[in-house]
């Protein structure tokens, strides 16, 4: 049943396959990569075009681009994962408190959310990075603390509608404490939409990481990060285009994969979505 409906959703299938492949690539990076992404530098092989020993060519320092792209998946995925875990925990907790406690808490949290939403994430992240300094850990913090507003809003809206349902009234009358109503009763019911947002958010975070690394604020060289690779290939776009093309494709495909997976999950979790059965000859 479940499997059948997963196959019926093309987005889910396609996006899921991409994401699984990227994850496998990240896990098996040392096995897949023909060279070490950092230490196999040989200035004799500097800026070799794709082909032969180096399938994707080499960069200015003579490192294999293919190996660096493969290892770059680790950075991108960990950015997606870590930031979304942080965002989800913050967003869901704040949303639950705002929606369930109401009054003062609601005003406070929604005010904060609106402020977060009115400042572009990249500007916010830049400000944090400026204060903390560049680096991967700081990037996690910057992106993980700034992008929870949507999760919070969706959670709050869901809590407001679930709060009125009889099962919550029943829980109250059975003596459940406030915390257990929020976390054991209501929360499981909002994880579906939150998962969708987290998946779509991963794609956004991967793009942001690339952008911040491009600006020189993300993972520091020689760490192989897709955004960082693009950044250092900036001046060589016409001389050695493969330096930009391959990390660019990697970002594009991964982000596309996460976005399609997110859309697919949304369709799958939507109770109104129609089953797979087809009727022949509708009159």
């Amino acid at each position: 049943m479940m499997l059948k409906s997963i196959f019926a959703h093309k987005n889910l299938m396609f996006g899921g396959t991409i994401v699984v492949l990227v994850v496998l690539m990240a896990i098996a990076a040392p096995l897949l990569a023909p060279f070490d992404p950092v230490f196999d530098a040989d200035l004799m092989n500097s800026e070799m075009p794709p082909g032969g020993e180096f399938l994707f060519g080499t960069d200015t320092n003579g490192r294999d681009v293919l190996s660096r792209v493969i290892h770059g998946a680790r950075i991108s995925l960990s950015v997606g994962l870590v930031t979304q875990i942080l965002n989800t925990i913050i967003g869901v907790s704040l949303g639950l408190v705002a929606g369930y406690m109401g009054r003062f808490w609601d005003d406070l949290i929604m005010g904060l959310t609106n402020i977060m939403l009115s400042i572009p994430v990249i500007v916010f992240a830049l400000a944090i990075m400026a204060a903390l300094g560049p680096g991967l850990i700081n990037l996690f913090i910057a992106l993980g603390l700034t992008n929870w507003a949507y999760t919070c809003r969706i959670t709050r809206a869901q809590v407001l509608s679930d709060k009125k349902k009889d099962y919550v009234k029943a829980a109250k009358s059975l003596g459940y404490s406030r915390a257990s109503i929020m976390f054991t009763q209501i929360m499981p019911n909002i994880l579906g939409p939150v998962l969708v947002i987290a998946t779509l958010g991963s794609a956004e975070a991967i793009l942001l990481e690339a952008a911040l690394s491009f600006l020189g604020l993300g993972a520091q060289p020689p760490t192989p990060s897709w955004g960082g690779m693009l950044s250092s290939a900036r001046d060589l776009l016409f001389v050695a285009p493969w330096l930009s093309i391959f990390p660019g494709i990697a970002i594009f495909v991964t982000v596309l994969g996460f976005n399609m997976l997110g859309d697919g999950l949304r369709d799958l979790l939507d109770p109104k979505s129609v089953g797979a059965t087809k009727l022949g000859g509708v009159r």
Binding site: M1, G275, A276, T277, L279
Partner: peptide
Amino acid sequence: VDFATAGGV
């Protein structure tokens, strides 16, 4: 009248 559902027609 028939309806398509996840479980069949």
